[in-house]
Amino acid sequence: MAQVKALNALEFINCPTYSLSWLSPSRQPRPRAAADLVTRATSTPSTYVFAELLQSPQIQALSQAPEYAQYYTLLEIFSYGTYSDYRATQNLPSLNEQQTLKLRQLSLLTLAKNPHNLSYASLQSALGLSDARALEDLVISAIYADLITAQLDPHNQVVHVSSVSPLRDLAPNSIPAMLASLQDWSSRCTTTLADLEAQIAAIKDTAAQKHSEKKAWTSKTEELIEDEKSSDKGAHGRQQTNMISRAVAGMRSGGRYGKRDRGGNSIEDEADDDEAMDLDDNQEFNEGFEGGSAGAGKKRVNRRKM
């Protein structure tokens, strides 16, 4: 948007009426009119692009006029120079208030390309400002003019610039240096991408190796668990078989009326014991009845109690 405004601000240059005023009655360019145009263009608000004006034949003719050549140099500084260049060049026309503000704003655009040199002290020196308050006012004016996007940091005495409008013209013979810078940047990007790809490949290899190790460990753990289960199952089967064998052997050795184990709860054993006691009681009763002896009857009673 700022670039469109800057280009529109120079439309008056192409006005046919104004173009005729450049020419003398002999149809020769008037250096004085061209010098006045330089002053007007550098003082007009929202005019920040001067390449088209600088390349016009009338302005080019100023470089050949000794009396007005300094106006051509001044326009070059406004096009791609800085405020420091203006102060370092002698015999230039004096700047009015509007020209001074604009040249400092344009110089700020150039200085903002180096984010490591945007301290208050450095900018004050480069822009010829006396104090921090004057610098902050200049930065604020550039922000409101859509020249830069920045934030002031008074605590750390630094200006943080996040974007710069592309309004500065290219200096002569600057294209080879720009191409070299772009090629260097491209080489760094290529190297960085190669490093990132190598790191990504290394991370993938490490992840694959860890996955294989985890899978092998899981498989080994499952195998050990299955072996342990099989071992426990075999031991339990052998123990159960031994218990059954001992029980069968005990039943064979005791017979039908064998002595029961202490604490046994078998209903069949209890039935056998009851049947044996009934047989004993009947035999004793018969003996007592036949003998008629009182002692035998007492003995029978005692046995019943037992």
Rank of each mutant, 00 (worst) to 15 (best):
S79T: 08
E197I: 07
Q151R: 13
S230C: 02
G128I: 10
D131C: 06
Y86T: 05
G255A: 03
A247N: 11
S181N: 04
R188V: 10
R300D: 10
D280L: 14
N286R: 14
Q60V: 10
P16I: 03
A171T: 02
F289H: 11
R32S: 11
L196R: 09
L54M: 05
M277C: 08
P25G: 09
Q183H: 09
Q105W: 07
A134K: 05
N302G: 07
L224W: 04
G291V: 08
H116G: 09
S107C: 07
K215H: 11
S245E: 13
T44R: 09
R87M: 15
R256T: 14
V38D: 00
A216G: 01
Q3G: 00
S187N: 07
R133I: 11
N173V: 01
M1H: 08
R303P: 00
I200F: 10
A208P: 03
G237K: 13
A9Q: 03
R300F: 09
L10N: 06
R27C: 11
G264F: 05
R256Y: 11
E76I: 01
E284S: 14
L108E: 07
S231R: 15
L179N: 10
S63K: 08
N96E: 09
E97C: 03
M251V: 08
A150S: 01
D36V: 10
A121C: 02
E228W: 08
D273P: 00
L279C: 05
D274E: 12
L54W: 01
S26D: 15
S187G: 05
M243V: 14
N242H: 10
E213P: 00
T44S: 07
P16T: 02
V164F: 03
A207G: 01
L95T: 06
Y71R: 01
S181R: 08
A35N: 02
G263A: 06
S253W: 04
L193E: 14
P57I: 03
N14H: 11
R256A: 10
A6H: 04
A247T: 05
L92G: 03
D146A: 04
S46W: 06
L10Y: 00
L182Y: 09
F12I: 08
L23M: 06
D278V: 15
L37T: 13
S125W: 01
A142W: 04
L193H: 08
S219I: 10
A216D: 12
H236V: 10
D205G: 07
G292F: 07
E52N: 07
S174L: 01
H160L: 13
V4W: 11
D153N: 11
S119A: 09
N117M: 13
S84H: 10
A235R: 07
C189N: 13
Q199M: 09
I200N: 09
R30V: 04
Q240G: 01
L74I: 02
K229C: 08
S163G: 04
L20G: 00
G297N: 12
T241W: 09
D146M: 01
S162M: 05
A177P: 00
E228S: 13
R238V: 09
E11Y: 06
D272K: 12
Q28P: 00
A150C: 04
D278C: 10
L147K: 04
R262E: 15
S266C: 11
K298A: 15
G263N: 08
D273F: 14
G297F: 15
R246F: 10
P93Y: 04
R304W: 14
S46T: 03
A69S: 05
R30N: 15
Q124C: 15
D153Y: 02
